[in-house]
């Protein structure tokens, strides 16, 4: 049976369940591509965590909520355009664009309100502020919209050439994977070749020096939040379209898991976030498929705890020594 993804525990699954008589290879491929697609989304969200942590050493607790807001924005745009009768593919494109813009705006605003005033403060302060912001955003959405699960329209059409593979690779899975790859490539190019990208790398390595050579650190930090939020929004809209429903609480769990992915890959490292996301996605998928899907979330949390205790630098991270 196709394992139920984490974001719709207990709720109706879009695809009809298939029996294990699919055969070992089929089942394996289902889990593989399922893991790849959810891993890509984890990677998209994890990138936001890792970039922010790399720049200001803050765990942006509210990042999961940005992802959730992206999904909600996508829903609202889709709803309005559907009511106006627009074709599905263009709705998807517009929804993605608007969700990205709005999430970026939210990310920017959150930083200005809850983190910027605390830049000199002891480490616990911005963390607590971030928790507060996360709670604020969740409840804001809940009150302004609804506490219920809202159905999300299927914006990714089933393509004909995918028909023979539909057993283990849905079109929306493929779409998620391809889009994620495209976005991550764009990000890598941006970081490597643009001026802002260089400024971001410099600020992440040594903020004071970056300031001294004329980098506008405020702008760089804002840009980091904006980009991270945009990525999360892409993930939000795509995944919501894949699953078929959203709710104001999806940000919390997705956020924690994406953070696990970021730490797993090495917090502060962009390739690490991608690697971590994929590893987490596959681990969850295969564990849920072959061991037990009830304890799926426990696997993720256990993984998080174990990494932080035994190898906090993650797979690709560097051990940072503390000067005594």
């Amino acid at each position: 049976m196709r394992p139920v993804p984490w974001f719709c525990k207990g709720k109706a699954v879009r695809d009809p369940p298939r029996g294990r008589q699919d055969g070992f290879m089929e089942y394996f491929l289902q889990l593989f591509f399922g893991g790849l697609s959810r891993g890509s989304v984890y990677a998209l969200i994890a990138l936001g965590y890792t970039m922010v942590y790399g720049i200001i050493e803050l765990i942006n607790f509210a990042h999961g909520e940005i992802y959730m807001i992206g999904a909600f924005m996508g829903l609202i745009v889709a709803g309005v355009l559907t009511a106006m009768g627009w074709p599905t593919l263009s709705i998807l494109v517009i929804a993605l664009i608007i969700a990205v813009l709005y999430s970026a705006a939210y990310g920017y605003t959150v930083e200005k309100i809850a983190y910027k005033p605390l830049r000199g403060a002891p480490r616990l302060s911005p963390l607590i502020s971030a928790i507060g912001m996360s709670i604020l955003l969740q409840n804001y959405i809940m009150l302004a919209q609804t506490p219920d699960f809202l159905p999300f329209p299927r914006l990714i059409p089933d393509l004909e050439f995918m028909e023979p593979y539909a057993n283990f690779l849905a079109t929306s899975d493929l779409f998620i994977i391809v889009t994620s790859i495209a976005v991550m490539v764009a990000l890598t190019l941006f970081i490597k070749f643009t001026r802002m990208g260089k400024a971001m790398r410099a600020t992440a390595q040594n903020r004071k020096m970056a300031m001294l050579v004329g980098v506008n650190v405020d702008q760089v930090i804002s840009a980091t939040f904006i980009i991270g939020s945009a990525l999360a929004a892409v993930g939000g809209v795509l995944i919501a379209s894949h699953i078929g429903q959203i709710n104001f609480v999806i940000g919390f769990l997705a956020g924690i898991k994406a953070f696990t992915a970021a730490v797993l890959g090495g917090i502060g490292s962009i390739p690490g976030a991608v690697l971590g996301g994929l590893v987490l996605g596959w681990t969850e998928s295969f564990a849920a498929g072959y061991v037990s899907s009830d304890y799926e979330d426990v696997f993720a949390f256990l993984l998080l705890v174990l990494i932080l205790i035994f190898r906090p630098a993650g797979l690709l991270g560097k051990q940072r020594a503390q000067k005594v």
Binding site: S129, M133, I135, L136, N139
Partner: peptide, 16 residues
């Protein structure tokens, strides 16, 4: 209804 919303806002405001 707004209790948790106010919690969140309180945490931010107190910290800042």
């Amino acid at each position: 209804e707004y209790r948790m919303l106010i919690f969140g806002a309180t945490m931010i405001l107190v910290m800042v």
